[in-house]
């Protein structure tokens, strides 16, 4: 079976490249590329918002996802929702009542794994903005290909033929699952295996976060 071949092999996550403070006007911003997929995220906040959308318990999180060209679609709103709910678990919103935090995501290139790239980029932008957070989070995408093998960070041509695409988000403290976003059909065992594999891969992304923060924290 294809499984045994893959197991002995080392998996490679796509090369990651990021720059913090990419935009000067935002409170926090990051550009992140994972392989050929690129996204820019800006975070503004906590700031004053309309009294109708204020909450006395915690800050209101607003996530806006913009595609590269063309009109906004329902799929974008869906993505926004996933990202918003993930961010909400990570941000300590109760520290900033009656305020708003705006997260704007701009897609630049989509060559597979855009959702996980956007999520990771959002996390870095939140770190850059200095908003208090409970934990950081890391997102990993994997696909179940035609023969049933699990492929981590699949390229675009593999995504089109895949039976299922799964995106998992883990938090940094307990390494527990925060968000699971799946498309397609798969068995429960495949899901569990994908979960475990992505969990292992998420450690690499956390160490990437740690590297970038320690790199600039040394200078400060």
């Amino acid at each position: 079976m294809g499984m045994e071949k893959n197991v002995s092999k080392d998996f490679k996550l796509k090369p990651m490249k990021c720059e913090l403070n990419f935009l000067s006007k935002s409170d926090g911003s990051t550009i992140l590329s994972q392989g050929d997929t690129v996204a820019v995220v800006s975070v503004n906040g906590p700031l004053d918002i309309k009294s109708t959308s204020q909450s006395i318990e915690k800050s209101t999180l607003e996530v806006l996802y913009c595609t590269k060209g063309g009109k906004p679609s329902v799929a974008d709103r869906y993505k926004e929702n996933v990202i918003r709910q993930t961010c909400e678990t990570a941000i300590l919103g109760s520290l900033y009542p009656r305020t708003g935090i705006t997260v704007t995501i701009q897609e630049l290139e989509d060559y597979g794994g855009l959702l996980s790239c956007c999520l990771n980029c959002t996390c870095l932008a939140l770190l850059n903005s200095g908003v208090s957070m409970r934990c950081v989070y890391a997102a990993v995408t994997c696909a179940v290909d035609e023969s049933g093998d699990i492929v981590l960070e699949p390229p675009k041509h593999q995504l089109q033929t895949a039976r299922a695409v799964m995106t998992f988000v883990y938090d940094s403290r307990e390494k527990s699952l925060v968000t699971s976003f799946t498309e397609g059909m798969f068995s429960e065992d495949t899901y569990k295996e994908a979960l475990a594999r992505c969990h292992a891969a998420s450690d690499l992304i956390f160490s990437f976060y740690r590297d970038i923060v320690s790199k600039y924290a040394n200078v400060i």
Partner: peptide, 22 residues
């Protein structure tokens, strides 16, 4: 567009292949 990410900047980080052993 990944080319616009500078590598020598203090606030940027590039990591080539991230390997993971499963």
């Amino acid at each position: 567009f990944a080319d616009i990410i500078t590598s020598e900047h203090m606030l940027s980080l590039t990591q080539k292949e991230l390997t993971i052993q499963l």
